Amino acid sequence: MKTIQKMYEHLNWANQRIFETLQSIEDDNHEVWRLFSHILNAEKIWITRLCGRDSSQLPIWSEAEIEICAELVKQNEECFTAFFTNLANTDLDKIISYTNSKGREFKYSVWDILTHVALHGQYHRGQINSRLRAVGIEPVNIDFITFVR
């Protein structure tokens, strides 16, 4: 449980660092904002599913607006923090059933979902950094080891 919680502390830290960097750059790179919005939308979808609510109408890809991203960064952190507050080690094996936006039903353990969300975001934050470097902007250091320092 401590490991997964630490992963989410890192996730929240990394999201905040990416957001602050994207806000500060003058280059209005639509694809970078779209990727960041996707990370945040996916987090919202997964926490909705973990809480037993219907996520099928939530967008996975949407137009990225700074204000919406700012709200999702805050909201997702609060929701996952609350979720972890009430989560016991034995809950990690609990199976979550959900229906995706295409109407297909899936079942995964809480552990698998939490691991997926953490890795999914890191993958896309890497894509964001790659795109930043391509336009001459220093990538954001979101390495886990930097976080634990």
Rank of each mutant, 00 (worst) to 15 (best):
M1D: 10
K2V: 12
T3C: 10
Q5I: 15
E9Y: 02
L11V: 15
L11R: 07
L11E: 12
N12K: 09
N12D: 12
W13D: 06
R17K: 15
R17Y: 00
F19S: 08
T21N: 13
L22D: 00
S24H: 11
I25L: 07
N29Y: 09
N29F: 06
N29S: 11
E31G: 01
R34A: 09
F36P: 04
S37T: 10
H38T: 00
H38D: 08
I39D: 05
N41M: 05
N41V: 05
A42E: 07
E43C: 04
E43F: 02
K44I: 00
I45K: 02
W46C: 04
W46F: 15
I47M: 00
C51G: 13
S55K: 04
S55Y: 02
S55F: 05
S55A: 14
S56E: 06
S56C: 08
L58W: 01
I60N: 04
I60M: 05
W61D: 13
E63H: 07
I66N: 00
E67T: 10
A70I: 00
A70N: 07
E71P: 01
L72Q: 11
K74D: 09
Q75W: 03
Q75R: 04
Q75D: 10
E77T: 14
E78L: 12
C79K: 14
T81V: 14
T81M: 09
F83C: 06
F83L: 12
F83M: 05
F83D: 01
F84S: 08
N86P: 02
N86L: 14
N86S: 14
N86R: 15
N86Q: 15
L87F: 10
A88E: 15
N89L: 14
N89G: 08
L92I: 10
D93E: 15
D93P: 08
K94G: 13
I95K: 15
S97K: 15
N100V: 00
S101F: 12
G103M: 02
E105H: 13
E105D: 13
E105A: 12
F106E: 00
Y108N: 15
S109G: 12
S109Y: 09
W111M: 14
W111I: 12
W111Q: 13
D112L: 10
D112M: 13
I113F: 02
L114E: 11
T115Y: 11
T115C: 11
H116N: 13
H116D: 11
A118C: 12
H120M: 03
Q122K: 02
Y123D: 02
R125D: 04
Q127R: 06
R131H: 08
R131I: 10
L132F: 03
R133H: 08
A134D: 15
V135H: 09
G136K: 03
I137S: 03
I137C: 05
E138K: 15
P139Q: 05
V140A: 00
N141V: 01
N141F: 03
I142A: 04
I142W: 06
D143G: 07
F144N: 06
T146K: 04
T146N: 09
T146R: 06
